[in-house]
Amino acid sequence: MNIFRLFGDLSHLAAIIILLLKIWKSRSCAGISGKSQILFAIVFTTRYLDLLTSFISLYNTSMKMIYIGCSYATVYLIYAKFRATYDGNHDSFRVEFLIVPVGGLAVLINHDFSLLEILWTFSIYLESVAILPQLFMISKTGEAETITTHYLFCQGLYRALYLINWIWRFYFEGFFDMIAIVAGVVQTILYCDFFYLYVTKVLKGKKLSLPA
């Protein structure tokens, strides 16, 4: 465990909790893509099935359970408790266009052709594109609430820190996982455009709104 990995995990945790608290405190999930949140719940579920088969550390186990628990809580708030505030008309990204190719790719390119390993690979590929419905929603409405942009920033920061973590691990441990690295690079690239808007607008106190 290096500091980049630790702060990456904490940034990921911060993103998840920011979103959960935002919805809970405002009693509204307006502007949040329920589809992205369902995809993240699928990502955590399929990736952390190894909770049942292998123990790595108390840290590892507890973080996995927190991620899974929070992601299901978020989906529950969006689709059940605060369903009336869910902006379904703008959340129109076709997720089957992500799930089907990602599933096919996981079957074709994986470390080991076993059920758990294919599901793990599926979760890695799916995570790299799971934010697309959220970004699509922002591009449709043309704006995002500031707290939503903080959520996205923490998600992107988590990815960037994981990239540094992999460089670190490659140099100091000789470890690399090509599937995670390629998917992680793709995922980080998806946030670049958003990072630019975040730095040039949100950090200067302006609301994130896209030119018409």
């Binding site: 190894d50 470390h111 390993e117």
Partner: peptide
């Protein structure tokens, strides 16, 4: 492609 079935990252 390094085979590594024990995944220690989140």
């Amino acid at each position: 492609w390094q085979r590594r079935v024990l995944h220690d990252e989140l």
